[in-house]
Structures are given as structure tokens and as C-alpha cells.
Computed example of a mutant assay.
Amino acid sequence: MWPPPALVVAAPALGIQGAFSNVLLTIVDVEEDRRAGSRTLPVRRGVQVSVGVLAVLAAAAYGLAGLTPRPWGGLLPSSSPSCCWAG
């Protein structure tokens, strides 16, 4: 079956993570971007709105990642095989 079910869920999570990284890095450069005429989200809407967008993107990425099927079965990391845990 193409694409594999894990990829259908994981790919959007990785795309959202990329968007998160982009917004995060533009918050750091907001004054420089404003002077350069870049129309990034923090320049257009402000840092406070951008931080809210970061929270939504993080929740979406982690939510999708938690739904990604694991090869050992189960959905959450706590269902990982005991062979991988020291103790």
C-alpha cells in the first residue's frame, strides 16, 4: 500500500514542524525583517500573535506525531518494546 499509513500521518507532522521552525526563527529577527521590508508573520501580526501560532503549530505537530503508527504496535511511545529501556 502506498503511501504507508505511518507516512500519511507523519508527513504532515513534519511539515507543521517546519512551519513552526520558520515562525520561531522569524520572531528572533523581527526588527531586522521590518527594516528589510520582509513581511513575515511577526512583522505583519506581531510577536504575541506569532507565539500563539507557535502554540497551535506545536500542538498540531505533537498530536499528529502521537497518532503515527509505530512498527512495534500501539500509538504512544509508552507502548514501545521493553528491550529498549534500561533498567
Score class of each variant (00 low, 15 high):
40 T>P: 04
38 S>D: 13
58 A>V: 02
49 V>E: 15
69 P>M: 05
74 G>V: 01
71 P>C: 01
78 S>R: 07
81 P>N: 05
67 L>S: 08
47 V>W: 07
79 S>P: 06
82 S>L: 10
72 W>L: 02
40 T>D: 12
74 G>S: 00
45 R>T: 11
64 L>T: 01
50 S>D: 12
42 P>I: 02
63 G>R: 07
79 S>Q: 15
81 P>I: 01
40 T>Y: 09
80 S>L: 05
79 S>I: 01
67 L>N: 08
41 L>H: 07
55 A>P: 01
78 S>Y: 08
61 A>M: 13
82 S>Q: 13
70 R>L: 15
71 P>D: 11
52 G>V: 05
68 T>L: 02
48 Q>H: 12
41 L>R: 04
76 L>G: 08
73 G>A: 00
62 Y>T: 12
77 P>K: 06
65 A>W: 01
58 A>N: 12
43 V>M: 09
63 G>L: 04
66 G>K: 03
67 L>G: 10
56 V>G: 10
65 A>S: 12
61 A>W: 00
52 G>E: 12
58 A>F: 15
63 G>D: 08
61 A>G: 13
74 G>C: 07
42 P>C: 09
54 L>H: 04
65 A>K: 03
38 S>K: 13
69 P>E: 00
51 V>E: 12
40 T>K: 04
40 T>C: 10
44 R>S: 14
42 P>E: 03
76 L>A: 10
75 L>W: 12
